[in-house]
Design a binder for these strands. Structure first.
Lengths: 218, 218
DNA sequence: GAACCTATCCGTATTAATACGGTTGTTTGG
DNA sequence: CCAAACAACCGTATTAATACGGATAGGTTC
């Protein structure tokens, strides 16, 4: 093998980028050709460094991994994207695959798996870590994910985000209503809407969703 | 400077260990002399590799960072410990400092900060990242942390852990009672107790506590 | 401009969560 | 061995959260 696979990495945490750098040392199959702190930087990087494979965190400031992936696949369809995430979450997986990612890794991955993933997507196939693979199987089995009908895209209104954040601070609907100068019922309506959007059963589900999707900082 | 500071690192995630490895390369001040996946391994490592400074994750399988730190400080009082955590959480900070840690870093640290922390604790002083430092200031200001009176150690009974885990799965008290074959009231009593122990206002507080303290896996 | 969508808002009824109070049995430290 | 502490359990009363239903205003599409 005389051409090494060119890799670019995007993650807002330096420690993760460094971790990947080291995982990619001392082997001849792939080489790191650039790193980015967010989606926008990643786009420039793809343009200049011409990587074969991009490993991108899903949650990043400025531009997240989903949008970056979409933009990359539009402009450079031959660049393969591997999504990187803390959580093995249904909607995150679907979002990234929908955006064109060909791989999905959790952040507790290791060197052999990383190289396998890189090699696999470079060869045009898909690679999912075992937990994600299991999730996908279950999603299809439960028909939660129907490939013929697009999954609704969850987006929150400013008011909904206000309420999610305050909920995560353990404020009751009454307290939130008072803070935002609304009727309690209005706050409760928003909560119902959020519950529906997140597929939650109750407030706890909303909070867990918010944490997994980094809508709030712990 | 002819003696480099000897560092050992303990974290159950390979990617973090690799990240730290790389952060410690290309500089002459410190050198990594060993790595461990959990507290027990770390203890052996300290014995054999004789590090000056240990950087330890708080949450690890087999033996956590708090217990490992305590054991290290007991047997090797000259070894300085820097705690490493995802969260800037009051009780985690207090636990580690109580166990004898001289530094506290969040996992989104960077190379200069890491080296500063290592250098500082090596010189016998303490280093807290700015967020932790702020927390400590606030804790003292609010007298939440009274250095003359030990903070109560929070431990959960098996039943309480059962209930915490089921709560995080969005089960209601009624459902939990049914699953565990208890009265609803019993479950509710446990919840009250947990709320008290965690200093939470409601169920949401319990869930956030559980996530921060890794009592549950997301 | 009519039909549609959606964010924001709110009332009523039901169910769940919480506050306060208490019993029993076990473990533990003096 | 006794007192104290605590785990596990439950009843009653109050407050909060949720289900179901609907109103209004602003923007978009056809």
């Amino acid at each position: 093998m005389y051409t090494r696979i060119r890799i670019a990495i995007a993650d807002d945490h330096e420690i993760f980028r460094e971790g990947f750098k080291l995982l990619l040392r001392d082997q001849t199959e792939a080489q790191l050709v650039g790193e980015a702190e967010n989606g926008r930087e990643l786009l420039q990087l793809v343009e200049t460094a011409k990587p074969d494979v991009v490993i991108a965190d899903i949650k990043m400031p400025v531009m997240d991994g989903v949008d970056a992936c979409r933009a990359i696949k539009k402009k450079f369809p031959d660049v393969q994207v591997i999504a990187l995430s803390m959580f093995n979450e249904d909607s995150l997986i679907v979002d990234m695959l929908e955006a064109g990612a060909k791989g999905y890794l959790l952040k507790n991955t290791n060197k052999p798996e990383l190289l396998t993933a890189v090699r696999t997507v470079y060869e045009g196939r898909t690679y999912y870590c075992s937990a994600t693979s299991d999730k996908l199987t279950r999603m299809i089995a439960e028909s939660k994910f129907n490939p013929y009908r697009n999954q609704p895209i969850v987006r929150f209104t400013p008011r909904e985000l206000d309420i999610i954040k305050l909920m995560c601070q353990q404020f009751t609907s009454k307290e939130i209503a008072s803070k935002l100068d609304l009727s309690i019922r209005t706050v409760e309506s928003h909560r119902e809407k959020i519950q529906e959007k997140t597929g939650s059963k109750n407030a706890i589900g909303i909070v867990i969703y918010a944490i997994k999707h980094e809508l709030v900082v712990l």
